[in-house]
Amino acid sequence: MIEVVISAAVLASMYGLVAIGISFTWASIGMLNLAQGFIFTAGGYAAWVFAEFAISAGISGPLLSVGVLTFGMLGSAVAGLAVGSIAFLPLQDRDNFRTRSLIATLAISLIGTQVWLIFFGPQNKPLPPVFGEGRIEFGNAGISYGQLGTIIVASVMLGLVILWMRSSRRGLQMRAMMMNPLGAAVVGVSVRTTGMRVLAISGALTGLSSVLLAQIFFVSPTSGVQPLTVGLIISLAGGLGSIPGTVIAAGLVGLAEAVTARYLQQSLVPFVLFGIVVLILIFRPRGLGGLLEDVRE
């Protein structure tokens, strides 16, 4: 039972980060960033390149872990900026921006996968364990360092971002954009600069989740697809643009996946997830916390 809860929390924290990135981007600049899978792999590969370099240079221990996490986040943030400069900046003031940017981000993710394939090959790349190896046993259950670290790092990072959003001038600008983009522009918030900042931050969150997920799976050109789809589902169920809603939805989806995989069948997981999201959306079409969209309109 406890193990189910733990694995649910791990899944929730990893997918939740991706979902919050998607949700953030949508709420502030009105762009559905479906290149999030590409951004995800970018972080993974950046971390892998750093790890290769660091291990050959003889760096190990906490320095390696911090470096891997930082480079993962940096790589994804840069990828986020790249996506923004292709799909957001040129299209931002054109008509039909939403559909066109959606297609543009999809095209980027199509190109991105192939670019990784060209540069890194189709092999899976393992990342070094960031949190060390070992388990804490209590009673008849236990939690590995990796799981514990994932939960802690994800929550701390998310908390930091939320704190920064609440208390800083830049965060205020972003919140203003999320509430009313036109109003924010009128009072002097630069839509373009803030939009790029949002993309970088959601990229960094995605990169973090990429490094965390690479603790379990590997980095490969297509490793971004699964997190992207689950992230989409979560951000949809949570209501695009609402952080509390997204966190709750991430918990719910993680729990559903863990419970289904444990007590039913692994093959049923997709259907259970889909069913849950459809149920949520049928009763609340804007998701759990998505009253925002009504306000925007």
Binding site: L32, L34, R98, T99, L102, V225, Q226, T229, V230, L232, I233, S235, L236, L240, P270, F271, L273, F274, V277, V278, L281, I282, P285
Partner: peptide
Amino acid sequence: RLDGLYYALLTLGLSEF
């Protein structure tokens, strides 16, 4: 119940599932 892009998001994951 869903409009536009929400539906796009929902169905995008279907293939993967």
